[in-house]
Design a protein around this nucleic acid. Structure first.
Lengths: 170, 170
DNA sequence: CTGAACTTTCAAAATATTTTGAAAGATTTA
DNA sequence: TAAATCTTTCAAAATATTTTGAAAGTTCAG
């Protein structure tokens, strides 16, 4: 396998994987392409390489920028915009985790809190308590996840790998 | 809000959330319904409550069993099958994590390994090394995730919450 | 200004996923 | 063994998501 071929395969594989992570195929492929590109790429280059339309490229490029996984790069003297991907894979992971937290954990916890506002506390006491326990248990897990995500954002790669090492070895 | 209403809302909320976790809406709703049901439920009851077809119920019920999130329960003297959900939310989380690991991390790591089999090591030396570094970095993250998932499966709830606490507080 | 170069939007088309429901398959009872 | 009861399958229909591409919008050099 040649380097170029391996890169192409990587773009495809990343596209497939993205689907499992709330990132659509094209968005993941553009991201992968930027990851393996030495130079910033223009919209036209991305369209050409991935064989997708201008609209599709534009929408997914904006989504990537919105997620903090890519940014615009203006080249002096060039009218066109170029894009570069976040190359540090640790930062990529942190960005994806933060974004998902924002979109999933926060709304989940809000919903759980609302559900606890049950007013027939006196009826079906046992059933009521079991339900509240379920909500609390889910919230506890969500809280842990949330806090770890929070810590990841402020801490760094080494902190993470050291912590994981301790966690696993013990 | 009454208890029954809160439970209905929970089923809906869980359904929405599931979508983000590779679990389709119906599958997540059936799961939520089983979570809040004191008694085992039959296919007909699930169909009735969630207002879905028999085929849909059957397929998603099997998926839940496959994921280890529900099991069949035979009632003596009853012809019909009943289903119960895994009530321990910690175990639910562990099951989902294990399942996703099996479906995502393992294949990812295999792909990464294959991609490293590039034979033009001599050409474009720097570009080659950067690409290999990217693959290695992704693999390192995947490995950590994998090991933690592994540990979660064999360890228990308390271990998890204690570890998380230490991670966060420090 | 004006027009060329580029970016953004969005309705319609293409594609992918989920759901239905009727038919076929099992299993148990009489 | 036949009928009744329940489970499973799967092609077709319904829904949901993604992609296209042409038109509208924006920016900027001349």
């Amino acid at each position: 396998m040649k380097l170029e071929e391996a890169k192409r395969n990587f773009v495809e594989a990343w596209g497939t994987l993205g689907t499992n992570w709330g990132i659509n195929r094209t968005m993941a492929q553009i991201h992968a392409l930027l990851l393996v590109s030495e130079e910033p790429l223009s919209t036209d280059e991305i369209m050409e390489i991935l064989d997708i339309s201008r609209g599709n490229t534009n929408m997914n490029m904006r989504a990537l920028i919105d997620w903090g996984l890519a940014e615009r790069k203006i080249k002096l003297g060039e009218r066109m915009e170029f894009f570069i991907g976040e190359k540090d894979i640790w930062k990529v992971a942190v960005k994806i985790i933060s974004e998902r937290r924002k979109r999933e954990i926060d709304p989940l916890r809000t919903t759980l809190r609302d559900l606890k506002l049950i007013d027939d506390k006196t009826e079906k006491k046992e059933e009521y308590q079991k339900f509240i326990k379920l909500l609390d248990d889910i919230d506890k897990l969500a809280e842990s996840t949330d806090k770890v995500a929070d810590k990841m954002v402020s801490a760094d790669k080494n902190w993470f790998f050291n912590s994981m090492m301790k966690l696993i070895v013990k």
